[in-house]
Design a protein around this nucleic acid. Structure first.
Lengths: 150, 150
DNA sequence: ACGGCATATATGCAATTGCATTCGTATGCA
DNA sequence: TGCATACGAATGCAATTGCATATATGCCGT
């Protein structure tokens, strides 16, 4: 894998790294200001919530969020402690945990979304035209798909 | 700031968050495998190295890397402990620290680059055509510039 | 049934990060 | 000069993360 590194690739990379840190910081800041928990809580709750019957295996969360195994484990600890999800051992395969979102969990997710959405709109969407947003979505989507593959 | 959130913006955002975590993980993994320190060390050394005379104020590092003030402070602690940079109080304004990269620091940066470059090429560049890379660089660059402004 | 391997989750401990505050230095102005 | 304010850097403490490993369960071949 000695592909020569094109300047455009480096430029895209540098911009990606830079903008990602800035944007995540600002979104987290907005959530904090609204006294809401961090973004990862939202992502995890969201993934469970949108799964059939509000249930998802812990590995499912890992796959969908790209969080490290031990971080998912401990984040779920915290969510469970707050009564936002329930953790059940799977009947069919005792190695799996099945996570079940609670009413409180759904409520929190719903409460977070307006703030999160506004942050995305303000810090990200506001600086892109419709066409640019579509291009960006397409380019990044391509990367997501190729990365997920290997 | 109640801009309605367009689907394309959400999609771009979701893909951005997702790919960013994946890519940074992989790059960090490659560095670790090569027994090299984390990416942020590279970024900080790089910023100092490319500044005039290999000197940069600590706030300069903050601005360029988007790292939190206290994280820059402590990262510089570590770099200093390893003899990669020197920290000097500024003569003109005693509040500022001026960071000076050492020969060892330059050497480490140079040693890291091939590994870092290969990781960017393999995990990122390899999945983009020249044209796509240019588009992506342009779109992300626009975001960087507008974000830096406010 | 049993040993060996694979998978899913959990955990002890060290390192890093976030938060709030503090410290030292400059600047503006009465 | 003297004091309020601002700025850059550092730090104590709690929370989170990373790493290595442990535990627990299931699967497979014999």
């Amino acid at each position: 894998m000695n592909a020569k590194l094109k300047p455009a690739v480096v430029e895209a990379w540098v911009n990606l790294v830079r903008i990602e840190r800035t944007l995540l910081d600002r979104v987290e800041e907005d959530l904090k200001r609204a006294q809401l928990p961090p973004l990862d809580w939202y992502h995890v709750l969201h993934e469970i919530d949108r799964s059939p019957k509000g249930m998802l295996r812990q590995t499912g969360v890992q796959d969908r969020t790209q969080l490290a195994q031990y971080n998912v484990c401990r984040l779920v600890d915290r969510l469970e402690r707050e009564g936002l999800v329930e953790r059940h051992q799977c009947q069919l395969d005792g190695r799996n945990n099945v996570l079940l979102i609670t009413a409180k969990g759904r409520a929190l997710r719903r409460a977070m979304w307006p703030v999160y959405a506004a942050a995305i709109a303000a810090h990200f969407g506001a600086h892109l035209s419709e066409v640019e947003a579509r291009h960006l979505a397409r380019l990044l989507g391509k990367l997501v798909r190729t990365e997920a593959a290997d």
